[in-house]
Structure formats: C-alpha cells, structure tokens
Amino acid sequence: MKKTISLVAALMMISGVVAAHPFNEAFNEQRAMYGKGHSFTWDGQTYITDHPEEVAAAAEANAANATKLLASAKAKYAEVMAVDFGWTLTKNLLKSSNKALEAGDFRKSMNISAQAEYHSRMGIAQYHQSQTEWIMAVPE
C-alpha cells in the first residue's frame, strides 16, 4: 500500500514540477504572506523575500545609480515589448521614474525603476511559460 501511495505521490508531482519550481512556489508564498524584507528557510538555507530589482534599488540613492537603474528598466521594457507581452502600467512607471530622477528624488526614481523592471521581467517569464503551457487550458 505504501508503495502505491508513493507511486501516486510521485506521479502527482510530475504536474507540480511542470507548473513551477518548488523554490519559486515557496518564495512566492512567503512574499505573498509577508511582503518584502521577510526571511524564510527553504531546504536548509535562509532567503529574503526581496526581488532582485528591489535588491538593486537598495543601493545608495544618487544620480549615477538612479540613472543606471532607469536605463536597465528601459532595456528590460524594450525586451518584453519585443515579444509582445508588455504590461500596461510599465510605461507610466518609466515616465514617473524619469520625472523623479529629473527632480533629484533619486530614491523614488530607483524604487519606481525597480517596479518597472520587475513588471517587464515577469512579462518575459509569462511569455516563455505560455509557449509550453497554453495547450493545457484547451478543453478535450
């Protein structure tokens, strides 16, 4: 009986593996529950629920860093638009970041750039995921 249950569990996991990597699932769950800046343990290691863009935006707030982050966010936006998977809010975020940069509010600009770049990164991930997973939604 134990063998059978293990077999069922193993087979059920196949669909789970296809859907998402276990670490990503754990990260997303922790992020959704606790927001950014929260630490959690997964597979014996400690992780923080910050997105890479937020880590980059935590650098010293100055003109050089703000300009660099905005350029990076713009490049990522061009990348997501090239695969036709852009999100609607991103363009305005880039404008807002630029405005904050021009006004000398570097911290605000960096935070907004981080958000814009995250949107674009997620859009690109959505594009790649859709290429293989769309067929799973078709009624048989």
Binding site: V8, L11, M136
Partner: peptide
C-alpha cells in the same frame, strides 16, 4: 490508485 495515477498522467501527456 495505480489506474487513476496513470490516467492522470495520460491526460496530462495527451493535452501537452
């Protein structure tokens, strides 16, 4: 249980 498991995998495979 084995049958249900195989059916599950078969349907995923077919859809995919």
């Amino acid at each position: 249980l084995v049958g249900a498991s195989l059916a599950l995998v078969a349907s995923i495979t077919q859809a995919a």
